[in-house]
Design a protein around this nucleic acid. Sequence first.
DNA 1: TCAATATATAGACGGACGTCGATACGACCG
DNA 2: CGGTCGTATCGACGTCCGTCTATATATTGA
Lengths: 113, 113
Amino acid sequence: MRSLPVIDCCAPLAGPVPSAEEAEATAALFRALADPARVRIVNLLARSDEPVCVCEFVPMLALSQPTVSHHLKKLADAGLLEREQRGRWAYYSLARDAVRRLASLVDFQEVSA
Amino acid sequence: MRSLPVIDCCAPLAGPVPSAEEAEATAALFRALADPARVRIVNLLARSDEPVCVCEFVPMLALSQPTVSHHLKKLADAGLLEREQRGRWAYYSLARDAVRRLASLVDFQEVSA
DNA sequence: TCAATATATAGACGGACGTCGATACGACCG
DNA sequence: CGGTCGTATCGACGTCCGTCTATATATTGA
């Protein structure tokens, strides 16, 4: 079993005073992006219209296959990536709505409701 | 001596393929926000028109004064906070332009120039 | 059903990070 | 000039994290 993706729990940086849980969830979301390998993964997916096979990430990142799998899982657990099984291959894509919410988290124009 | 704030070096999540240094700088920026105490600090500053005294953060975060100072330094090193000395008190405020650039990093609508 | 292939999980190891108490630094005030 | 107060730095300690190798799981094809 796995708890809710952090993207579903976190509060905007600007906005009302966050609870302890909200502050932790927001921090966890940023933590998901706090690694250069994961930044690259998101960047590749952002530039791709199609889901991308795990076997493409491995040579691009120059990391071992288990390490790449580890990073993909972190991003998926955060709710930023979606996984799709195609035969024996796994394809990952950006969770576009999650990305929209990520953008809203760092929007300082927003009214602090 | 201190190197450039990471906010000056990092590349947008969507956008052209980042170099190793850009991916690391972008990750470092998210790392600066990857702690609930720092999320709270930014939140308080976002809701405040005036710079905020260190002595206000300490009770709010319920952390020791050295720990709070440590978090403030991390955010300032990232380029997200500005420090101002007023007598024996130190005041911190949001670096509004840095915050604008942070928002642009997570903007996936942007053209990948 | 067995071998091969793609991905995920487990376990170990080293380094980074958050936290603290103790202390140094710096500015104000008698 | 000496004391006090606010903040920053130092050093230590425990935990988390990224990485690897080895192995398990799952899917395909013969």
